[in-house]
Design a protein around this nucleic acid. Structure first.
Lengths: 141, 141
DNA sequence: TCTTAAGTTAGATATATTCAAATCACATGG
DNA sequence: CCATGTGATTTGAATATATCTAACTTAAGA
C-alpha cells in the first residue's frame, strides 16, 4: 500500500489520480473502521491540499462506482466507507443506534435465478436487535 | 390488521396509542415497499389530524425502539421503514444507487459466542454490485 | 375528575448531499 | 512547443434531510 499502489488502483478503476482523490483513497486504505464522508473530509483536510466537501463526496461516489471502495450499510444516518479488505458483519441496536462489528462468517449466495444478470460484488449481513447495554437496561425495568 | 390490532401492538410495545402514532403505524402496516420518513409524513397528513414533521420522526424512532417497525438498511440517503412482515434481502447498485428486493432465503445465525448478550431481532442481507442495467452498460464500453 | 408522565408542536439548528458553473488536465493539430 | 477543444474534476452555494428546544397538550390510571 505505497503511493504507486494507490495510483495504480485508481488508474485501474479508470480514474485520474488527482491529489484530492489520492488523499481520500490513501486515507481509506490506511484506516480500519467505517469513517463517514464528513470524517474523511476532515481527516484529508488536516493535511495540505484543501479539498471541498463536494469533492470528497464526488470522489467517494466514483471510488465506489469503480469498485475500489465499498459503502457499508445503514450505519445510522450518514453513509460510511471502507477500503480495507477486513470483512465483518454489522449489528445495529434498535434502541441506541450503535453499530458493532460481528466477526465474519460465510453467508449463502442468493439463487442465481433471483440474482438474474446482476453482478454481485459484496454481501454483508445486517443484524438488528438490542445491544448488550440496552438488553440489560430493558431487562431491569 | 384492524384498528384494535394496531392499538394492541402499540400498547404491547409500551407506547400510548395517540392519533399521530396510530396513523404512522397503520400506514406502515398497510403498505409494501420502504417509504422514507418524508413520504410517511406526507401520506399521514393527507388524512386528517395533521401531525408535525418532528412527531413523525419521534414516532418512527419509538416504533423502531419498541421493535414494531424495522428501519431498512442503506436505501440511498434517507432512512426508510417497514412494518409488514414481508421479508426480503436488498441488492444495492454501486453505480446508480438503486435498491432492489431479492427474494427471501434463510441466512445462518452468527455463532452465539460472537453475539454475546445481544438480543437478535432481525437479520437482512445487503448485496452490492451492479444492477442489470449498469452491468449491461459497463459490458458495452 | 385530577394528576402527570408521555406526547406533540413550530421553529430553529445541525447535518448530509447535490448542483451548476468554473477550472483543470490531457490529447490533438498547427 | 503552443493554442485549442473536450471531458473530467473541483468548488461554493443551494438543497435536502434530520434533530433539538422549550412551551404546550393529552391519554390513561388512581
Amino acid at each position: 500500500m505505497d503511493a504507486d499502489d494507490i495510483r495504480r488502483s485508481l488508474e485501474g478503476g479508470g480514474l485520474r489520480c488527482t491529489p484530492q482523490r489520492y488523499a481520500v483513497m490513501a486515507f481509506l486504505m490506511s484506516h480500519q473502521g467505517h469513517p463517514t464522508a464528513a470524517e474523511i473530509f476532515e481527516a484529508v483536510n488536516r493535511a495540505d491540499p484543501r479539498s471541498s466537501r463536494a469533492t470528497t463526496y464526488n470522489n467517494l461516489r466514483d471510488l465506489v462506482r469503480a469498485g475500489l471502495v465499498r459503502e457499508v450499510a445503514a450505519e445510522g444516518r450518514a453513509a460510511r466507507f471502507d477500503a480495507t479488505g477486513m470483512r465483518h458483519h454489522h449489528f445495529i441496536c434498535d434502541r441506541c443506534g450503535n453499530v458493532e462489528d460481528i466477526e465474519w462468517f460465510n453467508v449463502p449466495r442468493p439463487a442465481s435465478r433471483s440474482l438474474g444478470k446482476r453482478v454481485l460484488r459484496q454481501s454483508e449481513l445486517i443484524l438488528r436487535g438490542l445491544c448488550t447495554t440496552c438488553a440489560a437496561r430493558r431487562a431491569t425495568r
